[in-house]
Design a binder for these strands. Structure first.
Lengths: 219, 219
DNA sequence: ACATTTAAGATTGTCAACAATTTCTTGTAC
DNA sequence: GTACAAGAAATTGTTGACAATCTTAAATGT
C-alpha cells in the first residue's frame, strides 16, 4: 500500500494515484457516498485533474467508486445485501481454493498450517482477539496461496476490498471465536488430509456462516 | 453490444468506445497479442486519443487488454492454463447460482426450464448443433437470472469475456453433446426439484468437465 | 564483420485550456 | 410564502499540444 510521503516535488502518476485512492477508500479515510470532486482531489494529492480522472475510472471498474454521467464520482456504498452476496461469492471461490490446496499441499506447508491451528486454539483460550484475528487472516491468505489459483485469488482480493467495512465489525462480535474456531480447524484438517471435497465444503460452510452473521446483525 | 453505424459526425464518448472495443476484442476482430496503438485506434474509430486511452485503461482492469509502462497496450492473450482457471472459477460461481436458483425458482420458471430440456434433447437427437448450442447458452443465462445474484453474475460475465475464444471451439467438438446433454438435464432436474446441494454439484461437475476438455485439447 | 553509440522516429504519459452539463443562487410573479 | 425562470457558479467531458520514453536504424570504431 502506497502513501504520500517521500514524493516531494513531482506529481503523482495514474498508477500511484489508483493505489493511494484505493487505500484511502478501503482504509476509511474516504467514507461511503462521499463525493469525489476531481479538482479537489487534484489539489489534495498534488496531481493533475486528468490523472485523478483516470484513476477514478479504474476504481469504478474495480467497484470501489460509483460514477454518474456528468454528475461525478462518489465512494460506492455497499449495501448489506451486497455484502452478503459478496461473502457468498467469496465462499464459493475460497471453497475452490481450499479444494485445490488440499490437492497440492506439501508436507512442509501442512505442518505450517498445523502450527497455525495451534496458535489459533491458544489465542481463543487466552481470549486474545487480535492474535486470533491475525491468524484468521493468515489462514485464508495461505490457503489461497497454496491453491495457486491466480484468477480466483485476484477476484477474491477485489471483492474483499469492497466489503472490508463489514468484515471489520464482524471480528469484534462477542462469542464469535467459539463458533469460528472449530470451522477453521476443520478447514485445516481437511486440507492437510488431502481431502478436496471436505476442504471445499468446510470452507464454504465457514464463509456461509460469516454471511449469516452479516445478514442477522444488519436485519 | 454497440456498433459504429449511425453515429456520423460527432466523435465517440469514452463509454461508447469501451463497448465498441470490447465487442471488437470478444468478437475476434482484434486478435490476441495485437498491438493497440492509441493514435491508430483514434483514427479508426473517429475518437480523440485521450478517449481511446481512457477506454483502454478500463478494458485493462476488465482483463481484456494488457498494458506495459511506456510500451502501450495489446489484446491480452489468455493462455490455456488461464482458460482452465477461468472455467474453474466459473464452475464455482455458477454452482453458487444453481444453488440459489434451486432455492428460489418458481413453478413458471421450472416449466420454462423443462421446456428447454425438451428442446435440448430434440436438438441432440436431430444432430442440430446450432440449436443445441443456443439452448446451452440460454440454460446458463436463465439459471444465473433465476438465482438473482448480482455480484456472481457480474463476475461470471467478465470472466466469460476473457475465455470466450476457448468456449467457441469447444461447442464444435465431435461427441461433445453426448457427454454434456445428461449433465445439462441433471442441472435442470436438481434446480426444478428445489435441491440446492444437488444443483450446485451438478453445475460444478458440468463445468469441471468443460475445464477438462480445454485442458486435454490443448495439452 | 561485430559490437557500441548516437540520432531519428514512433509511441505513450501528462497537462492545461476549452466546451458541455449540472447545480446553486437570485429574482420575479402570483 | 411558494413556484417558477433566468443567470451564475461549479463540475465534469473532451481535445490538442507538449514532454518523456522506448524502438529502430544508421554511423562509428575496433
Amino acid at each position: 500500500m502506497e502513501t504520500l510521503e517521500g514524493l516531494e516535488g513531482r506529481s503523482l502518476t495514474v498508477a500511484e494515484l489508483v493505489n493511494v485512492l484505493r487505500s484511502a477508500i478501503v482504509g476509511g479515510e474516504l467514507v461511503p457516498n462521499q463525493r469525489l470532486v476531481e479538482a479537489d482531489l487534484a489539489a489534495e494529492y498534488r496531481a493533475s485533474r486528468g490523472n485523478i480522472r483516470a484513476a477514478l475510472a479504474e476504481l469504478t471498474v474495480e467497484g470501489l467508486v460509483e460514477r454518474v454521467q456528468n454528475r461525478g464520482a462518489r465512494v460506492r456504498a455497499v449495501s448489506v445485501e451486497e455484502a452478503v452476496e459478496i461473502t457468498e461469492v467469496r465462499a464459493a471461490l475460497e471453497a475452490l481454493c481450499a479444494r485445490k490446496a488440499a490437492e497440492r499441499i506439501t508436507d512442509a506447508e501442512a505442518s505450517e498450517l498445523q502450527e497455525l491451528a495451534k496458535r489459533m486454539k491458544d489465542a481463543v483460550e487466552r481470549g486474545d482477539r487480535d492474535s486470533y484475528s491475525e491468524s484468521n487472516q493468515t489462514l485464508h491468505a495461505r490457503v489461497i496461496e497454496i491453491s495457486a489459483q491466480q484468477t480466483a485469488a485476484a477476484t477474491i482480493h477485489r471483492l474483499r476490498g469492497q466489503a472490508v467495512r463489514f468484515q471489520f465489525r464482524l471480528a469484534r462480535q462477542p462469542g464469535r471465536p467459539a463458533v469460528s474456531l472449530p470451522q477453521h480447524l476443520a478447514i485445516i484438517d481437511a486440507v492437510c488430509a488431502h481431502d478436496p471435497d471436505a476442504a471445499a465444503e468446510a470452507m464454504r460452510v465457514h464463509l456461509e456462516s460469516v454471511a449469516d452473521v452479516i445478514r442477522s446483525t444488519h436485519a
